[in-house]
Design a protein around this nucleic acid. Structure first.
Lengths: 258, 258
DNA sequence: GTTCAATGGATCACAATCAGACCATTGGCT
DNA sequence: AGCCAATGGTCTGATTGTGATCCATTGAAC
């Protein structure tokens, strides 16, 4: 009797699914557009933003599908594309799964939209400044402090000139900023910050990578973390604003000359 | 020959469709969930937020469908529901159309989710404070100043105790705040503010309406407008924050006691 | 009063997704 | 060597939303 069964409720429980507590929502499905394209975009976004680093294993298909809120069939279509593109590799069997093998290369196509640049950059300034101020005003737990510092440290990676290194730096950098957003405890802010950060990354992919900036950038991160741990909300806000403005200048400099 | 024809490409052109330039997107469709339910929600939201006031006529179905990015069939399903609910009334023929006849009554069901309350209220504080600060820092055109002042004035409406009056005040109040968000010139901010405002309104519908607050609230609006026109960014930010905090206190007071 | 353009009303075939069941593979465990 | 649980692979029927036409109604303009 009990056939092979499948999917869903097994005694192994679901507490893992609830991690994000965000996407969930049993009955409500999600996007239409091309649910398929949306799914790919969603996966690429997660990878670019450092949610899954190279070498990490994605959740099982059934679980991932639930998180993104699409059917497994659709998810598999998307994964299949990513596999062809060489972004992930898949192994069957128990202990198998889908692992990230490379960071997706940027879509350097698409013309530059100045409206998009302006919008993304200004919205980011708002969100990150607010996030920094709020987190600095909070009392962080030991674990939270550690998470924050760890995210900051990881940005100081050995950095070559390969596209791969650069993408990895972007992912780690994004993760640092998103960590701050998460620490606000305001889910809407976290989500908006993630979306916006991804848009910024897409723009950064269109300009040359300035190595000199990396160290400067990391130093700013360090000071920001310090201000946060010191509960100096105004300093944190100012530093975050300066940091964001740096990126803004860079982008405008390269992209506004069309 | 040329049959009755219909829809779309007629020599009359399409420039109208492109108005928003936002939702558009020929091939890409939109939501999944229940596209149908989503459509209803979208329409209700627009009405509650004062985009269409009572007595206003909605755009023709073909156009509205394009704006919301759903097929006309789906839109009609939704409109049909709203008609049954008495929110809109429809007349056929040239010069006919769909007009808003009443403000949708609140869904006073649904349990109170403290997480939702906290998230919405805190995110709103961030967005509106930032918007006020930015707009105060801008040089507004004559037309923009007029729009702002007009939106503020309209809130001082004669206010009875009927549910209808209250809903109308909410719509006008929302429109005032969204006007400020729009004046930032940051579309992402505008959109986030609209979404968040709607969530706040939904929460407000769950608590008793405090008439005393209305005048106080309008007075704050007036001072906020003054600060903005004076280019006093910090004052504007502070006033916006106070105003938002007022609502926050109110909501927490009523809702946190479960 | 006839005309006609704008607008709502209705139908149908087709493509996209979904939901769920079942199959196939793998590797640690006994 | 064999078992078996976790995981990817595949198929099928149902539902939903779309896109494209065509029909029906209305009221201003002529």
């Amino acid at each position: 009797m009990d056939r092979n069964d499948d999917d869903g409720s097994r005694e192994s429980g679901r507490e893992d699914t609830g991690s994000g507590a965000e996407a969930a929502g049993r009955p409500p499905r999600l996007r239409g557009g091309n649910v398929f394209e949306h799914t790919i975009a969603e996966l690429l976004r997660a990878i670019r933003l450092g949610k899954y680093l190279v070498g990490d294993k994605l959740p099982p298909e059934r679980e991932l599908a639930a998180q993104i809120n699409v059917s497994r069939a659709t998810l598999r279509q998307a994964l299949s594309e990513l596999q062809i593109a060489g972004v992930v590799s898949v192994r069957r069997g128990r202990y198998g799964g889908t692992v990230v093998t490379a960071l997706p290369s940027a879509d350097t196509d698409a013309g530059i939209d100045l409206g998009e640049l302006d919008d993304a950059v200004r919205f980011r300034l708002i969100l990150e400044t607010a996030a920094a101020r709020i987190v600095a005003g909070r009392d962080l737990s030991e674990a939270e402090r550690e998470t924050l510092v760890a995210a900051e440290q990881r940005c100081w990676m050995p950095l070559g000139s390969s596209a791969e290194d650069i993408e990895q730096f972007r992912a780690l950098d994004a993760r640092f900023h998103l960590t701050i957003a998460e620490l606000t405890g305001i889910p809407s802010l976290t989500q908006a910050a993630a979306t916006t950060r991804d848009r910024i990354n897409a723009l950064l992919d269109r300009i040359p990578f300035i190595h000199t900036n990396v160290e400067h950038s990391c130093a700013q991160h360090a000071r920001l973390v310090e201000a946060i741990l010191d509960h100096d909300a105004e300093a944190a806000a100012t530093l975050a604003a300066q940091h964001a403005e740096g990126t803004e200048q860079l982008l405008r400099g390269f992209l506004e000359g069309k």
